[in-house]
C-alpha cells in the first residue's frame, strides 16, 4: 500500500505557491508535447520523461541559490527548465538544432548551461557524482559559499562511483547536496530486486553523512526538506543525502513496454500525482480558482507551442563545423 495523497496546508504566499504549480505544469506540458513529437519523429534518440516526478525538481531547485552548481542525469529536462533554461532552447536541443543549449550535439540527455551553472545531464548512471564532488572541492578550496546539488536516481546507488563519492565527500566535508530521486525502478529493475539494503538513507548514513527522507510527490515536503538541507550544507557542515520518494508515471524511455510493473500500481501512484494534489490544496485554501488554473494551463500551453515553433524554425549546425570544439579553440577558456 502506498501513502495517502499529499494534503494539508500550503505554507506559502499565493505568488510563490503559484510559481511552484506553474513550474510543475510547465514540465508536464513540455514533456507531454515532447512525447508527441517523439512519435512524430521530430525528437529522436533517447527521451526520458519526468512526468510524475515534477514536485522533486520544482520543490528542490526553488530552494537553491542562483549561484549554486547543478549536476544532473539524462532525465533532466525538468531541472534545466526550473533552473532557468528557456523552454525554447531545451526544445531546440531535443530537435538537434543549433539553437539548442549545446548546439544540438547532446539532445535530450545532455542539457548544459554555463549561465545557470548547469554542468550537464550525464547519461552514465552515477557519472555525475564524482564531478559534483569535484565542483564542491573547488568551491571549498576557493572559499565560496556556493553548494553543488547533484541529482541522480535510485539506480545510481548500485554503482561504485556512488560509494566512492559518498566516502570522499564525507571524508573531506564537501559542500554537496546529494539529491536522490528514488522512483523505485532502475530502468525496469525494482529496488528490492537489486539491493540488499533498500533503505537508501542507510547507505549514505554508513558514510557518516546526515540524511533526510521526504515525500517526493509533495512539492511542499520537497521544498521544506531541501531548504533545510541546503542551509545545512551551506553552513559548512559537509555533504547531506536527501532521498525524494517519487514515482515516474511514464515508461523509462520511449522504448519501454513496461513489462516489469502493473498498470494498477501506476494508477495507484497517480492518485498521489504532484500537480493535481497540489492544485487541489491551493483551491481548498482559496489560493487558486478553477478559472485561474485553466488560465495558467493555457499560458503554459502557449509557452510550449512557442517552444515548438522556435525549434521547428531552428537551423542545423553546418557539417563544416563538425570537428569544431573537440578541443578548446586557442586562447579560449583560460
Amino acid at each position: 500500500m502506498i501513502a495517502p495523497p499529499p494534503s494539508g496546508p500550503v505554507p506559502y504566499a499565493r505568488d510563490f505557491a503559484r510559481q511552484l504549480l506553474t513550474d510543475m505544469l510547465r514540465i508536464r506540458r513540455m514533456e507531454e508535447k515532447s512525447a508527441e513529437l517523439y512519435g512524430a519523429g521530430k525528437i529522436r534518440g533517447f527521451l526520458h520523461l519526468y512526468i510524475g516526478e515534477e514536485a522533486v525538481a520544482v520543490g528542490a531547485l526553488h530552494a537553491l541559490q542562483a549561484e549554486d552548481n547543478l549536476v544532473t542525469t539524462y532525465r533532466e529536462h525538468a531541472h534545466a527548465l526550473v533552473r532557468g533554461m528557456p523552454m525554447d532552447v531545451i526544445m531546440a536541443e531535443m530537435y538537434g538544432k543549433r539553437e539548442g543549449c549545446s548546439l544540438g550535439r547532446g539532445g535530450s540527455m545532455h542539457l548544459f548551461d554555463k549561465r545557470t551553472r548547469l554542468f550537464g545531464g550525464n547519461a552514465i548512471v552515477a557519472g555525475g557524482l564524482p564531478v559534483a564532488a569535484g565542483l564542491a572541492l573547488a568551491d571549498k578550496m576557493q572559499k565560496t559559499d556556493r553548494i553543488t546539488a547533484c541529482f541522480f536516481g535510485d539506480g545510481a546507488v548500485a554503482e561504485g562511483a556512488f560509494h566512492e563519492t559518498m566516502n570522499l565527500a564525507a571524508l573531506w566535508q564537501l559542500p554537496v547536496l546529494f539529491c536522490c530521486e528514488n522512483n523505485r525502478y532502475a530502468m525496469g529493475t525494482a529496488l528490492e530486486r537489486s539491493e540488499s539494503q533498500t533503505d537508501l538513507c542507510a547507505k549514505a548514513a554508513s558514510y557518516k553523512m546526515p540524511t533526510i527522507k521526504t515525500d517526493g510527490m509533495d512539492v511542499v515536503a520537497v521544498h521544506e526538506a531541501t531548504r533545510e538541507a541546503q542551509a545545512q550544507v551551506r553552513s559548512g557542515a559537509g555533504p547531506l543525502f536527501i532521498e525524494y520518494q517519487t514515482y515516474r508515471f511514464r515508461a523509462h524511455s520511449m522504448f519501454d513496454a513496461e513489462l516489469y510493473r502493473s498498470k494498477a500500481e501506476v494508477e495507484e501512484w497517480k492518485t498521489r500525482g504532484p500537480i493535481h494534489t497540489f492544485s487541489a490544496r491551493l483551491k481548498q485554501e482559496g489560493k487558486l480558482s478553477e478559472e485561474e488554473f485553466l488560465a495558467l494551463d493555457a499560458e503554459v500551453n502557449a509557452e510550449v507551442a512557442a517552444a515548438v515553433t522556435f525549434a521547428e524554425a531552428g537551423t542545423w549546425e553546418p557539417l563544416e563545423h563538425m570537428l569544431a570544439d573537440v578541443y578548446t579553440p586557442a586562447g579560449g577558456q583560460l
Partner: peptide
Amino acid sequence: ERIRDTPLSELAFVGMGIGAALGGMRP
C-alpha cells in the same frame, strides 16, 4: 589542502579532478 592523499577510488578522484577543473581549479 594542495597535496591531497585519496582513498583507493580512482573513478571518484579522477571525476573529482574533472569537477574541480570545471570549478576553476587546475588539478
